[in-house]
Design a protein around this nucleic acid. Structure first.
Length: 422
DNA sequence: AAGATGCTCAACCGCCACGAA
DNA sequence: TTTCGTGGCGGTTGAGCATCT
């Protein structure tokens, strides 16, 4: 049995690079007759090639709608985002990049993006931070006792993406990608302490030497950003003091979704400070992540990898984007007050899909921690006190409005790079 | 200058799914 | 239901070029 191979060996058919003459023959034939049966085409077109070779040459190179040239930042982002969700589904990914072929995307991934992610400490297969490289060997303890749900895996992927963004801050030419590096600390004191000890900075500089992507003056840069942010934070804190500050944030050790933050893990690695911060951060960090995306879409496509027929599982890239356009008018009368679970009470922000560039969206809002009592660490890195964070009152009061106004002003801009500490 | 090494990407290979017979 | 032809996909290769030593 066994089917006939497309190109019999020793069939006398030509292989290897196409000549301009062959290209011309193929293009002219298809222009006149369409490709029809690929197997029959070469004979009819006067080509000593197999049909498969003709099809490949046409679809990957000669097709008139092929886009040539470098991949744009947006295209790169789309590839990475889709790859995180779909894996090596190159043709599906290509379906979202007009004019790009699956082969081209695959090549670009293998020769550029994959390497870049690896250099940045991100596993290009899982899109998770590479624990070995980042000193994150303790991170899995975050999930002790829990099996990772798809949502949590998604959050991991998102963390990886934030790391990627952070490390994309400067490219080889010293220009900056339009993304913010978000640094979160449980309080400004801890951040300043960390900065002054420079543990993180030194680690980053070490990485910079390897990665060749971070600014050489990183330490000063971070420091200046920190100072700048500190004044904003103080403003916010003043306003917050005018409001009642009530309510508890479930601590991370009770939250299997568990955003990583520094107090749980000793505060010396990158993941301690670069965290997935989002609009829900304003509602305390334990806000379920599904607020930020269309989970049905994601879950559906998670299960779609093995669906027959390849193109059946095309998904709209819009559905993968965080839905985080912020509607200020929606900030109304909800308040967190003496509630055991404020998460149940805080309405989600209004989301929309209007923004075209997910990396410029106000999702990049830091977790604003208003805690006045810092959670404590002891030297052996064991976690002692639960994180007790005071939630902010959000209401129609002038201070409340002003608070949000400042928050939006502070974080809603997309000037980059901008390190926002909180 | 020349060989070694690395990088890119067009092209190939083998496999799979689908639809027609 | 099975077989077969075909198109399509993803992994891999290797020629050609660039950079390094």
């Amino acid at each position: 049995m066994g089917r006939t191979p497309c190109c019999e060996k020793n069939s006398g058919l030509k292989k290897g690079p196409w000549t301009p003459d062959e290209d011309q023959k193929l293009v002219e034939y298809i222009k006149r007759h369409g490709h029809g049966s690929w197997r029959a085409l070469p004979k009819r077109a006067g080509l000593l090639r197999c049909g498969k070779s003709c099809r490949l040459r046409w679809t990957n190179y000669l097709r008139p709608d092929i886009k040539r040239g470098k991949f744009s930042i947006e295209e790169e982002h789309t590839i990475i985002e889709l790859h995180a969700a779909l894996g090596n589904k190159w043709s599906t990914i290509a379906g979202h990049l007009p004019g790009r072929t699956d082969n081209e995307i695959k090549n670009y991934w293998n020769t550029h993006l994959k390497k870049r992610l690896m250099q940045m400490g991100i596993d290009p297969v899982t899109h998770k931070p590479r624990a070995d490289l980042l000193g994150l060997s303790n991170v899995p303890s975050l999930y002790n006792g829990f099996s990772l749900t798809q949502e949590q895996q998604w959050e991991n992927a998102r963390l990886a993406e934030y790391l990627r963004q952070a490390l994309f801050m400067a490219d080889d030419k010293g220009t900056h990608a339009p993304t913010d590096l978000l640094i979160r600390s449980n309080d400004q004191y801890n951040l300043q302490k960390s900065m002054s000890s420079s543990t993180w900075v030194h680690q980053q500089q070490g990485m910079a030497m390897d990665f060749k992507v971070l600014p050489p003056n990183l330490e000063q840069f971070l420091q200046s950003q920190t100072n700048e942010c500190a004044s904003n934070i103080r403003k916010l804190e003043e306003l917050l003091h005018q409001s009642q500050t009530v309510g508890y944030c479930p601590s991370n050790n009770l939250n299997p979704i568990g955003y990583i933050n520094n107090d749980e893990y000793g505060g010396s690695n990158i993941a301690d400070f670069v965290s997935p911060c989002s609009m829900d951060g304003l509602q305390m960090k334990a806000q379920p992540p599904q607020m930020l995306r269309n989970d049905n879409m994601f879950l559906h496509n998670q299960g779609d990898h093995d669906i027959n027929g390849g193109n059946n599982n095309i998904l709209n890239v819009e559905d993968l984007k965080p839905k985080v356009s912020f509607d200020e008018s929606n900030l109304s009368t909800t308040m967190w007050a003496d509630q055991e679970d404020p998460l149940q009470l805080m309405p989600p922000p209004t989301f929309s899909t209007s923004n075209s560039n997910i990396y410029n969206q106000p999702e990049l809002i830091p977790f604003i921690n208003t805690s006045t009592e810092s959670s404590s660490m002891v030297n052996n890195n064991s976690y002692v006190d639960p994180v007790v964070s005071k939630a902010q009152l959000v209401n129609n009061s002038e201070p409340g409005k002003e608070f949000w106004s400042i928050v939006l002003k502070a974080v809603g801009t997309t000037q980059a790079p901008n390190i926002i500490s909180a």
